[in-house]
Structure formats: C-alpha cells, structure tokens
Design a protein around this nucleic acid. Sequence first.
DNA 1: GCCTAGGTCCCGTCG
DNA 2: CGACGGGGCCTAGGC
Lengths: 240, 240
Amino acid sequence: MGDLEYMIDPEPIEALKLINHRKTTHVLLIYGEMVASYEGRAKSQLEELMPRLIISKPDGTFMVHESSKREPRLWNPPPSSLYASIEQGILTIRSVRANPREVVIVEVPIIRFISALRLGTTVNYRVFGREEDVVNAIVNNPNIIEEGLQVVAKEYHTLVGDIDILARDSRGNLVVIECKRSQAGPEAVHQLKRYVEHLSQRENGTVRGILAAPSISSAAYHYLKLYSLEYRRVEPKWVV
Amino acid sequence: MGDLEYMIDPEPIEALKLINHRKTTHVLLIYGEMVASYEGRAKSQLEELMPRLIISKPDGTFMVHESSKREPRLWNPPPSSLYASIEQGILTIRSVRANPREVVIVEVPIIRFISALRLGTTVNYRVFGREEDVVNAIVNNPNIIEEGLQVVAKEYHTLVGDIDILARDSRGNLVVIECKRSQAGPEAVHQLKRYVEHLSQRENGTVRGILAAPSISSAAYHYLKLYSLEYRRVEPKWVV
DNA sequence: GCCTAGGTCCCGTCG
DNA sequence: CGACGGGGCCTAGGC
C-alpha cells in the first residue's frame, strides 16, 4: 500500500518533491532543525535553531510541535494552504491562512526525517457528557431539579442570551435553569443573573434562577447566594 | 546522534521495547491501524479500526490524530503517564491522567511505523498582540482613549471580576475600561456592564464604562448603547 | 492545590 | 459568510 513513504536525512530537493506530491492527500511529518515565525492575529518568532516537528494535514492543518505541551508552538488551523520551496539551499515551508490572513514560515536547514502518511477520519463521532446531555436529562425528567417542575422551553432565545431551559415551578413561578457540564464558575452565575433580571422586567410574579451543574466554585456560590439564585447538583451522567 | 530512532512494520514486542525505553525522554510517533477509547470528564470511542497517528511527549502529552482538524481526536494533556503492553499479541497503550482521572486506551493491531525523536523547547517565548499588550499601550498613553484620562489602577480586583483598567476622566468621573485583543462580542459588553454596576453602588458620581477593542460585533454594539456604555477602537499594535 | 481568566483559542451551529 | 457560545477546551498566573 502506498500509505507510508519516508526518507531519512533527505536532500532538500527530495523532501520538496515529497511534500508537493503528497501535501493534499497525506499527513506529512517533517523532523529536523528549524527556525520559524508567525504573523497574523498576533505575532511571534522561534529564532533559535533547534529540533522541532512539523505536522501538515491535507485539510490545511499546520503545526510546529516542540518537546512539551499539548498545544503546538506555532500553527495554522484549517483551511490553510501549504507552499514549499528551496531558498538558498534551505527547505522553506509557508502555511498561509486566508481569513483572517495568517502566515507561518518555517526554514529547515537540517532535515532529519520526512514522511507521508495516510490517516482515516472517524465518522459519526460522538462525545458523551456535554452540556446538551445535561439539558436533555433535565428536560426528560424535570423532577431531578425539583418536584412539579414543568419545562416551558429549551434553548429559549432572549435579547441578553439563550436560556438553556425555561420552566415553571408548582406555584407557577417562572424558572430559568442554566446548565453546565462541569464545575460552574462566576461567569455561569452572572449569566443566570442576567437572564433572571431580563425576564423579571416583563413577568409579574417572581422569576427564579437555578444553576444546574455537577459542582460550583466557592466564589461562584457566594455570588449565587448574594443574588438569591439557587444551585442544584446535576451530574452529566452518560448512558452505559 | 541518538536523536532519531525508527522502525518500519515492527513486531509488537520491538515497538514495546522502544516505547518503554524512550517514553520519558523522546517524542514518540506511532503510525498504524488502531481503535481507541476515552473516559474521564466525558466519554467517547473510536471503534472503527483505521490508520491514525499517536504522538506522545516526555511531559505526558498524549494525542491521537486523524486526517483532518488541528485538534487531536483523543488526547490527554500533560502531566499524564504512559503505559504500554502487549495483550493477546496486540500493542496496547494506556495514557492515564491523575487529576481529573482520565484514561485513553489505544489498541494497535497493525503497527506500520514507530519513531522516537528528540525535540527542543523554546525558552523566553513571547507572543505579541495579546490583551495585556493593549492594556499596557493604554496605561502608557491614556490619551489614545481620551484626553485627560488618568489611570488609577491596572488589573483592579473586585468581587465581580477583575477590571483591566480603572481610570478617572478630566471631570473626575470613574472610568472602567475593558480591553479585548480582537473583536468584542456580547460577553465583553456584559462584563463591562457588570463592573460598572458594581462600582456604581459605592461611587457617588457617574461611573463610565469603555470597551477598548479593535472592533465590535453589531449585536455587542447594540447592548453597549442600550447600557449607555462606550466603545473606543484600539488596535493591538506590536512593535516592528 | 484550586480557582480564574485569556487564547493566534478551535469548532460546530445557526442566522 | 460572519457571529456566537461550548469545550474532555489548554495554559499561565494568583492565592
């Protein structure tokens, strides 16, 4: 199968040929000593020549990785375009993103290894335990929040943002429920407060606000109480 | 130099030896057909056997990449621990993160390629054009916001969050300045409104709020006007 | 160690 | 196409 090509210590011209031949169909790995620069939404430089790893994907993903961290040191997200050339005998790679315009330029005076791989893509990929799963769990069984709760709307749009769940309690009070898949912080409380204040303007009775999350930070809980909002512990349980 | 080791179509036992020998010092690349699963803060599975690329770094970074997107399909951020073994003749790799506990398990029945590389790490890395750069530009020359503005504090901590810049205008009014490095959205306006409301409670005079950003979305501008806040265009210029 | 806020965030979704 | 908000966000800095 032509799904793995590689060269050890290639001449720049040989590396260039492989890149141009495979860049739109294969994932390219380039290992060598290099310097690089980025300019676009921000700007930075890797001036020191040292061993780094370039990863290029056929969708235009471009990354320069170093020895630590999950994040690449420099990158362009897809869709970007790759242009390789040899300048003064040095393999030079340009990744250009159109909108916003961003350019990463890498010079690789020492190429230790280059490879072209064919990778697959998982279809119908699904992550369990997102915020949406918490929302659905509550909509399907509002009692996990409170007895007698009746869901009025899901993803209710307002001028100040979208409310995850709008409901009425057993006394007929409007209830705003803000859901989080992980620990709620101060921002979640401020969001909830904003929705409650907004709805209070055009509702005669009390409007309650409930933050539904697996946990809440202490500062967030402090604000919550200050604003007379409520917290309900809700685990983002996923089906086994 | 012992900075590049590789094997093509290795036996699982040979791959295992390389992994265990180099996992704490080198970046490992493993290309082959694999299935994988993740469980931790959320949960997901890659059930279909297909070619993927594993990248493991000595700090514990672990990634499973597919043919598109900048983000790995599965991963563990550093610090995580790597455990490799052979189970029923199949190379099996476990990446375990302690806190929060998260586990990625990859089975590689077909190993096409494995490599160990030594990469460097840039020291004193700096990105220009961050929010902090905008803040400093204003602190150094408040006139770019408004004539006669006097900066009172930078990173002023309040109960409802940190204010980028606190100042007084030429009439002695308190001014809250919220800075953004790129286009401001509704959240930035809500943030600013929160700070202004908070300070208004303990200030006799008017408290003004200014959003400083290179641009602002139309929806955000709408809120801004609604709340009687102000917008100043400020570019995150970096030195050439 | 937890918490908080920023990011060249990336990314999907919806207008 | 831009805009908006979620994310297994990741990462640095404070406490």
